[in-house]
Simulated scan of single mutants.
Amino acid sequence: MDSLLKHMVHMTGHRDHAMLDLSTITAVQELTGAAQTRILSLGKSGSQTWVRARASIRGDHPARVEDQLEAGRGEPLDLFPALAECLASRAPRAEQGDSAQATMWVPIWIGEQAASCLEIVHSGAFTAEVVHTIDGIVGVYRNFHNLLDYSERDSLTGLLNRKTFDDQLARMLHATPEPPLPGQPERRQQPATGQEQWLAVIDVDHFKLVNDRFGHLYGDEVLILIANMLQSSFRSHDRVFRFGGEEFVVLLRSTTADNACRIIDRFRKAVEAHVFPQVGKVTVSIGFTSIKAYESPVVTLGHADQALYYAKTNGRNQVCHYDQLVADGLLQTVAPTTTVEFF
């Protein structure tokens, strides 16, 4: 009982999703004698659901956050038939294996959706006592996950908020490998050739006119619909934020410049083609830049802002790539100290 209480205190003592994941799988591993425990992310890309390890612990080794750059979008759900059937039937758990080794998947249901899943590999079948312990830990995890989610989400759109962005960008900067010095070999963590991390800043064109002409109620509806399009246009392992007002930010993981531009412009075109209730047509301007490990978050965000400002002052309803604008001589490489406010 003392051990259980210790783990419960540890799980609820964090204000961060990653640390909650680590303390949860550590509790499961120690209290159930599991051989391996993982927290899996479940996300959709097109019509396909993908399973990606978010944190793991094996044997007596310490729990670790999985390398998001290497994990990419993960593996298709089809490779986990027992889990797929569990999700389809909304069952509380799924098991497969025998008396020598068994695996259990426990989806973390939040309302009608399960965006996370606990995977436990056990030497031998799961006893009723072990299942009872797992259910208790999952209940605490779900409740505290909801509390953290509430503090990290924008109340209007449900997107991640500005407070969360700073931490997410810092992690991406930390995970982005620096280029090797001349004469040094490539680092093992170096992503595939041309694969980089990206930051995009999105601003709704003439949004003040929408509020002035149709009222804030319709203005809020425009923001909610754009937030929905952001979530459906970008990949499950990308991160979408609302910065406040009509400004949004996206962090794109591990892709090429051409593909980043294609993904971002696909979203721009989706907004341009949509007919918003009462308001009609709305467009967005977007500036994006690559994320470099040796640049501070302020500089990275400032570069995307500069590209956005160029888009806003050169016709709007377009996507501008900071690095390309600099290469073409259309922008100077001056690092701003503050972000730009748009009207």
Score class of each variant (00 low, 15 high):
residue 180 P to V: 07
residue 248 F to Y: 13
residue 303 H to Y: 11
residue 158 G to S: 03
residue 243 F to R: 06
residue 207 F to G: 01
residue 130 V to E: 00
residue 98 D to C: 00
residue 70 E to W: 12
residue 131 V to M: 13
residue 222 V to L: 08
residue 275 V to N: 15
residue 277 P to I: 05
residue 303 H to K: 15
residue 229 M to Q: 13
residue 330 L to T: 04
residue 274 H to C: 12
residue 269 K to D: 10
residue 59 G to N: 08
residue 162 R to L: 14
residue 251 L to Y: 02
residue 52 R to D: 05
residue 265 D to A: 09
residue 180 P to I: 06
residue 255 T to S: 06
residue 286 I to L: 03
residue 277 P to E: 11
residue 233 S to I: 09
residue 32 T to M: 03
residue 169 L to W: 02
residue 78 D to H: 11
residue 123 S to T: 01
residue 33 G to D: 01
residue 340 V to A: 04
residue 104 M to A: 12
residue 232 S to P: 00
residue 319 V to P: 01
residue 156 L to W: 07
residue 182 P to Y: 11
residue 91 A to H: 06
residue 295 E to L: 13
residue 197 Q to H: 11
residue 72 G to C: 06
residue 336 P to H: 05
residue 254 S to V: 11
residue 100 A to D: 01
residue 95 E to D: 10
residue 63 A to R: 07
residue 203 D to K: 07
residue 197 Q to R: 07
residue 272 E to C: 11
residue 53 A to N: 10
residue 324 Q to G: 02
residue 314 N to S: 13
residue 304 A to S: 10
residue 236 S to V: 03
residue 309 Y to C: 07
residue 47 S to D: 13
residue 59 G to E: 11
residue 163 K to Q: 15
residue 246 E to W: 08
residue 321 H to W: 13
residue 54 R to A: 12
residue 181 L to Q: 14
residue 14 H to D: 05
residue 247 E to C: 05
residue 193 T to Q: 14
residue 306 Q to P: 04
residue 143 N to R: 12
residue 291 I to T: 01
residue 300 T to C: 10
